[in-house]
Simulated scan of single mutants.
Amino acid sequence: MNDHVVNRPASGGMGRRRFLAAAGLTAAAAAITATEGRARAASLPAPKAAGAFRVPIEDVRHTRTWMAWPDSTSIWGNQLGGVQSDISLIARTIAKYEPVYLCANSGSAAKARSMCGPSVTVVSTIPVDDCWMRDTGPVFRTDGSGGLDAVGLNFNGWGKKQAHARDNLVAGRIASHVGVPFTSAALVGEGGAIEQDGAGTLMATRSSLINKNRNPNKSQAQIEAAMLAAYGASKVIWFDGVVGQDITDDHVDATSRFLAPGRALVQMPLASDNDVYAKDARKQYQVLSAATTAGGARMAVDQLQGPDYYKIRSTNPDFLASYANYYVCNGAVISAHFGDTRPDAAAKTALARLYPGRTVEQLNIDRLGAGGGGIHCVTQQQPVA
């Protein structure tokens, strides 16, 4: 779940969507969640060959894609039906290229099956609060020798901004469903907050992870060490990010992505854009252009031009118009278009050039985008071991 809004209201504050009235959990519910999470993690076998596992880059071969089905009117209100339509469109599109497993609450599983069709496998035994599988799902790792395990990032509702009793347990429950070892990372964060190149280099924003709403009383060095251990990496490229302007505190995957080890992409704003997110994007480009990888190679950085927010279809001030929030699956790149015709076409051409041999599918997911998220936000890959 990622927010990178250009025409945000001057008052700032929490955009993206309304939070549940009782944001976070009650103390009792929090205690139950923590206890169950620790018990589930302890009941699973420990990963073998500690330190040998690494999160691969997204374009490796996948076994399947994991998604989640939203069914909460407390979160989505009268927008729920449209968001469900967008989720089903994304799921059906990815299912043309690889299996899709979609977690749905038992009471809404039938509707999910009806809207997604037979090409999508609906799993009704893993309850969810919302649809942001990138942030709630497990981060899968491989060891290069046929081993697969999973790490949980201890999802806490983006800093206790939304109720998350079910979503906090999704990562461990999916790992159990798959039958792989599961451990909890020594930090609180979300999958959308961290990008990996699969060869030892990560990138992330300080605003999201070095934040008292996730990791109080932890230094940047401590958080970085936890990230490196969780991802099997050795270097983090940090961006300052944007604090407090959206629910994620500026996730990196709406702006900057790894294309390959030593190569990255940044979605750039229009020259006339000068809000905090435009400044953040330009700074990310500058930082990456001067950075080196874990192996010491200089980063090569491609630019992906963003759309004009005054020319896109949506007029919602919380809209996420991020081409960079695409998802790479087997044989395809799944991205979005926003109604600004020229940059929409240019983004499709650019992605086809950057991912040769893959079909680029552009989808209208405006209802999901009005909730502040994109295609990468609602997907989580399970790589082939």
Rank of each mutant, 00 (worst) to 15 (best):
D253S: 02
A91Q: 06
L351M: 10
D302H: 13
T33K: 12
P343F: 15
D59K: 09
Y97S: 15
L44S: 14
T136D: 01
P45L: 02
H164W: 13
A175D: 03
T292V: 14
P127W: 15
T136I: 14
Q220W: 03
Q162W: 00
S11K: 13
E58Y: 00
G192E: 05
D308A: 02
A345Y: 02
H337P: 02
T293V: 00
Q305L: 15
L320C: 12
L304V: 01
K279F: 00
D273K: 07
G81Y: 11
I312D: 04
Y323T: 12
Q381A: 14
Q220I: 04
F319W: 01
A385D: 13
L320Q: 14
G296N: 07
Y310S: 15
T73S: 10
N105M: 12
P9D: 13
G189Q: 08
V123G: 02
A28W: 10
K111F: 07
A39P: 01
A23M: 11
A294H: 09
K348G: 15
I57Q: 04
T73G: 06
P138T: 08
T136Q: 09
V83G: 06
R141K: 15
D344P: 06
C116G: 06
L169V: 08
A29F: 00
A225I: 07
K348E: 05
R38V: 13
G295Y: 01
V100L: 09
S272G: 01
W69R: 01
R173I: 02
G144M: 12
Y97H: 15
A350T: 11
V276H: 03
V180M: 03
D86T: 06
G374M: 02
K48C: 02
V139R: 00
T205W: 07
G24E: 05
Q222F: 00
P118I: 00
A28D: 09
A294R: 06
V60G: 08
A23F: 13
V122G: 05
A221F: 09
T142C: 14
S106Y: 02
S184Y: 08
N325A: 06
A34V: 11
I312T: 12
L304T: 06
P383Q: 03
M115Y: 00
I237A: 13
G51I: 09
A297K: 13
G12Q: 03
L354F: 15
R206Q: 13
A52M: 11
A68F: 01
N330F: 10
P343V: 07
A165Y: 14
L89D: 12
P383W: 05
V170N: 05
N78P: 12
D129V: 08
F140C: 10
G152Y: 07
G232S: 13
T293M: 02
V5H: 04
Q245C: 05
L169N: 08
F140Y: 15
R54T: 14
G198T: 09
A109H: 03
S119F: 03
L304M: 09
I90S: 04
S219F: 03
L153G: 00
Q362G: 07
D275V: 02
D280C: 06
R40S: 10
